[in-house]
Simulated scan of single mutants.
Amino acid sequence: MIDHAHDLACVRDATERLLTAVAKLDNASLAEPSRLPGWTRGHILAHLARNADALVNVLEGRPMYASAEARDADIERDAPRPLDTQLTDLRETAARFQAAGDAPADWSRTVELRNGVTDSASRMPFRRWAEVELHHVDLGIGYELEDLPDEFTDREIDFLAERFAGHKDVPSTGLSAGNGRTWTTGGGAEGAPVAVRGTAADLLGWLAGRRDGSGLTTNGALPKLPPL
């Protein structure tokens, strides 16, 4: 069972880690490339702020974004802002998300995200947690996949393994981590089952498109995953 209150607390902790790390940067470093192709660090911070507002929209029954074009335009508009403006925006939007999460609500209801995707309202705090943690890594400022909380890593692997389950382009794939956890995913493509082993951080990096899988071992070719 998903505990949205627990996940909201985890979002708060992850956001504080992010804010503390970002506060040590300067304006010049925000203009430098992040680990995401085509995005500076400023783009990532702008996206995180706008995503918080978008998830407030979801929780309050409004469209997540006015349009895909508006989402992209807002990120481009906000990416060049100076550090103090970025930090203020991150804090204020994080507070709005926490307030929306703390409001009395039916957490079992179904909500709609982008592109017609639906999910339980109770999953929104975890989705926000994933945004904060993974994009903190994407900034390339010393926070790595190995630094993520163990609980988050296991649950995000759960989420991504479920997302790729039955995908027509992914063969049946078993995942094994050094912590003893196992998962299965894929199964929609022809071919012999593939066994993939590695650290939880490397498995997550591969599934989330943050690592190329070179740190993993397999009994065959490493499956090519579709984009997230």
Results as ranks from 00 to 15, higher is better:
Asp72Glu: 15
Ala49Ile: 02
Leu48Gln: 07
Leu30Lys: 03
Leu19Pro: 03
Ala52Val: 10
Leu25Gln: 15
Asn51Ala: 15
Ser34Trp: 10
His43Ile: 13
Glu69Lys: 13
Gly38Leu: 02
Ala54Glu: 01
Asp74Ile: 07
Ile75Trp: 05
Val22His: 01
Thr40His: 00
Pro63Met: 04
Ala54Thr: 01
Leu18Thr: 02
Leu19Thr: 02
Gly61Trp: 10
Leu30Gln: 03
Tyr65Thr: 04
Leu59Gly: 06
Leu30Asp: 03
Ala28Cys: 11
Pro63Ser: 05
Ala28Pro: 03
Glu60Lys: 05
Trp39His: 00
Val58Tyr: 07
Glu69Val: 11
Asp72Ser: 07
His47Ala: 01
Val58Trp: 08
Asn57Ser: 10
Asn57Phe: 10
Ser67Ile: 04
Arg35Glu: 13
Leu55Trp: 15
Ala46Val: 11
Met64Gly: 04
Thr40Val: 00
Val58His: 08
Gly42Val: 12
Arg35Phe: 08
Val58Thr: 14
Glu32Cys: 00
Arg50His: 15
Arg35Cys: 13
Pro33His: 04
Ala52Arg: 14
Thr20Gly: 15
Pro63Ala: 07
Ala28His: 13
Leu45Ser: 14
Ala54Lys: 00
Met64Thr: 10
Glu69Asn: 09
Thr20Leu: 11
Pro63Trp: 06
Glu60Val: 10
Asn57Val: 12
Ala66Glu: 12
Asn57Gln: 10
Leu55Tyr: 14
Pro37Arg: 15
Arg50Met: 15
Leu30Phe: 09
Val22Pro: 01
Leu30Tyr: 06
Asn27Phe: 09
Ala66Cys: 08
Pro63His: 08
Arg71Tyr: 06
Thr20Phe: 08
Arg71Asp: 05
Pro37Met: 13
Asn57Ile: 05
Leu30Ala: 06
Ala54Phe: 00
Leu18Asp: 03
Val22Trp: 02
Gly61Met: 11
Asp72Leu: 10
Leu55His: 13
Pro37Gln: 15
Leu30Val: 09
Gly38Val: 03
Glu32Met: 02
Ile44Asn: 01
Ser67Val: 02
Ala31Met: 06
Leu36Pro: 07
Ala54Arg: 02
His47Trp: 03
Glu60His: 08
Asn51Leu: 06
Pro33Trp: 08
Ala46Asn: 09
Glu60Asn: 13
Glu69Ser: 14
Ala52Thr: 11
Leu59Glu: 08
Leu48Lys: 05
Leu48Trp: 08
Leu48Gly: 06
Ser29Arg: 13
Glu69His: 14
Leu59Asn: 07
Ser67Lys: 01
Arg50Val: 15
Ala28Thr: 14
His47Thr: 04
Leu59Tyr: 11
Arg41Gly: 06
Gly42Tyr: 13
Gly38Gln: 03
Ala46Trp: 13
Gly42Thr: 14
Ser29Gln: 12
Asn51Gln: 04
Ala68Val: 14
His43Gln: 12
Leu55Met: 14
Ala52Ile: 10
Ile75Cys: 06
Tyr65Leu: 03
His47Gly: 01
Thr20Lys: 12
Val22Gly: 01
Trp39Phe: 00
Leu25Trp: 12
Asp26Cys: 07
Ile44Lys: 00
Ile75His: 09
Leu55Arg: 15
Pro63Gly: 02
Ala46Pro: 07
Pro33Phe: 07
Val58Pro: 03
Thr40Phe: 00
Ala49Leu: 02
Ala66Gln: 11
Trp39Lys: 01
Ala73Asn: 11
Asn57Arg: 09
Arg62Ser: 09
Pro33Asp: 06
Ala49Asp: 06
Asp72Asn: 12
Arg41Phe: 08
Ser34Arg: 10
Leu36Ile: 14
Asp74Lys: 04
Arg62His: 09
Ser29Pro: 01
